[in-house]
Amino acid sequence: MSTETVAYENVGIPDGKLALWLFLASEIMLFGTLFTSYIILRTAAPAWPVGWEVLNVPLATLNTFILIASSVTIVTAHSRVQKRDQKGFSAFMALTVLLSFGFLIVKAVEYGVKFSHGIFPSTNIFYSIYFVMTGLHGLHVIVGIAWNLGLMWWAKNGGWDDKLFEGRVEYAGLYWHFVDVVWIFLFPALYLL
């Protein structure tokens, strides 16, 4: 490869950010499809359970606040990177990860209560949708946790001084906001409507 630095023709957005936006576009199609399926199944159904009567709204509200808080902490972690404050970054990233675990634990409690009442995904179409959509969202949370832990590990192992580091934290944040937004749609769709 040539050593001279050449300016390739580009659209002015870094590769990683562009790829992440494209990834999010495909994720929007994925969740969009699931939400559309939800609407179609619901309108076709003769009767539909009322979300707040069969699901635990207080726990879900708590989870909503946890996720919003974690979005704030990850933004703060990113701004700490811009200010070159490694301690602050580590603290806020750890807080983000803790909050995400908190979200999963609350979710697990919710699931556990349902299972103990003999309610499973196969119970009826409402619970099919509830478990599959929140389960898929939970998988995205787990991916986010792995991503953020990876960044914390990398920061301690040479990543902090890498010129790509700040960008990668930003992308992790973008992804995390997306996971958050999906929940913001899921919460009313399943629990409140």
């Binding site: 050449v6 390739y8 023709e9 659209v11 957005i13 590769d15 562009l18 990834f23």
Partner: peptide, 13 residues
Amino acid sequence: MNFIVTVLNLRAP
């Protein structure tokens, strides 16, 4: 994703 980013950002001058 790779194809789109390559076409957008990696064309020769």
